[in-house]
Simulated scan of single mutants.
Amino acid sequence: MFTHAIKLFTLNKFDIKVDPSWLIIAALVTWSLSRDFFPDALPGQAQITYLTMAVIAMMGLFVSLLLHELAHSVVARHLGVPINGITLFLFGGVAEMDAEPTAAKDELLIAVAGPLMSLCLAIGFWALSLMAGAGNLVATIPEVLSYLALINLILALFNMVPAFPLDGGRVLRAYLWHRTGNMLEATKTASRSGTFFAYFLMALGLMALFHGALAAGLWQLMIGAFVLIAARASYTSQLAQVAFDDKTVGSLMVRHPVTVGPDITLDYLINQIMLGRGVSFVPVTEGSVLLGHIDRSIVAGIDRENWASTRVGDVFVGLEDGVMIGPDTGVQDLLQIVSATGQRKFLVVSGHQLEGVITLSDLTQHLRAAGAA
Results as ranks from 00 to 15, higher is better:
328 D>E: 14
194 G>W: 01
291 L>E: 03
350 S>P: 01
226 F>H: 00
109 L>Q: 07
212 G>E: 04
373 A>F: 05
255 R>D: 10
40 D>R: 14
210 F>D: 05
186 A>R: 06
104 A>C: 07
6 I>T: 15
110 I>Y: 00
58 M>T: 08
271 N>M: 13
17 K>F: 14
328 D>S: 11
212 G>P: 03
78 H>A: 10
124 G>M: 13
352 H>Q: 11
199 Y>V: 13
280 S>H: 13
24 I>N: 10
286 E>A: 15
324 M>E: 09
16 I>T: 11
336 Q>L: 08
215 A>Q: 04
286 E>M: 14
308 A>H: 15
134 A>D: 14
166 L>K: 03
115 P>D: 03
278 G>D: 15
361 S>W: 06
250 G>H: 05
76 A>K: 01
217 G>W: 07
307 W>K: 08
261 G>K: 07
352 H>I: 06
212 G>T: 08
149 A>W: 09
293 H>A: 09
206 L>W: 07
15 D>F: 14
16 I>H: 08
11 L>N: 12
303 D>W: 14
72 H>V: 03
365 Q>A: 10
178 H>M: 09
337 I>V: 13
24 I>H: 08
231 A>I: 02
38 F>I: 08
281 F>L: 14
370 A>W: 02
16 I>E: 07
270 I>Q: 05
70 L>C: 01
136 N>A: 14
303 D>L: 15
206 L>C: 09
